[in-house]
Amino acid sequence: MSIHVVVMGVAGCGKSTVAEAIRDQLGFVMAEGDDFHPKANIDKMSAGIPLTDEDRWPWLRVINTWMVAREALGQNTVVSSSALKRSYRDLLRENVDVFFVHLAGSQELIYSRLAARKDHFMPPSLLASQFATLQPLEADENGVVVSVEGTIDEVVSQAVDAVKAYQARKAEAPAAAQVKTAA
C-alpha cells in the first residue's frame, strides 16, 4: 500500500518547500497543488479575490484523482495543497489513505514571508481570508501539525520525520495482521 501525503496550510507557510524535501529525501512522486488550478482560479487569486468552495471543488477532485491514479501504480506521493477545510480534506482522501502535514504558524510570520515572495500569483492581501477559512486538523484526522516558527531546516526535518514515522506505522500494520492470522 502506497503512502500519500498532503502538505497543507495557508499560502506562504512553506508547503512547496516541505513537499520538495519529502520528494527529495524519501523518493516520493510530487505534485504542486497550484499546478492543478484552472486558469480561472489563478486569475481570480491574482486579482486579490478569494476562491469560493465552488472554485475549489473541481481543483480538489483533480488532486484526489491524481493520488488515486498513483495508488494504482504503487507510487508514494506528496502534494502541496492548502486543504484549509475539513470538507476539502475529506474530498482529498476519497478512495485513498492520506496523511496530512499541516504547516502552522502565526498570521504575522506567514504574512511577512508571503510579502517577501516574488513571482507568485497569491497576493498577501488574501492571507487573512485563508486564516478565516482554515479549520485545523481534528483529532480523528490522519496527520500531524508542524510549526513553521523555526528555521526551514527545522520545519523540513520535523515534517520528514513525521512522514517516516507514519510510513513505519503503515509498514508495521500489515505485519501485525499477518502475525494474528498465523496464530
Rank of each mutant, 00 (worst) to 15 (best):
M67G: 12
L127Q: 09
Q178Y: 01
R113H: 11
E20Y: 01
Y166C: 12
F121K: 10
V156G: 01
T52M: 14
D153N: 13
M122A: 10
R169F: 00
G9H: 03
T65Q: 14
F121E: 06
A175W: 01
D119G: 14
T52W: 10
S106P: 01
A171C: 04
V6R: 04
A83F: 01
N41I: 01
E32Y: 00
K39F: 03
F131D: 09
A19E: 04
V62P: 00
K15S: 01
G150C: 04
A116V: 04
F99Q: 10
L51Y: 06
V98N: 06
M1Y: 09
S81D: 10
E71Q: 13
K39V: 11
Q178K: 15
V7P: 03
W59N: 05
R86D: 09
A104K: 09
A175M: 11
H102Q: 10
L114F: 04
A116Y: 06
S106E: 12
Q25L: 09
L26Q: 08
S106L: 08
R169D: 14
D55T: 04
G33W: 04
F121C: 07
E71L: 12
A116N: 13
V5M: 08
V98C: 07
L84V: 03
D35V: 01
V79S: 13
M122C: 15
A83M: 10
R86V: 12
E141A: 08
P38C: 05
G27R: 00
H120T: 11
S46W: 03
V145C: 14
T151F: 06
R23N: 04
L51E: 09
D153Y: 02
E32I: 02
A165W: 01
I49Q: 11
A132H: 08
A115L: 09
Q25N: 05
A47V: 05
L137Q: 09
P38H: 07
L126R: 12
I49P: 02
M8F: 05
W66T: 00
A128N: 10
A47Y: 07
E94S: 11
W57F: 12
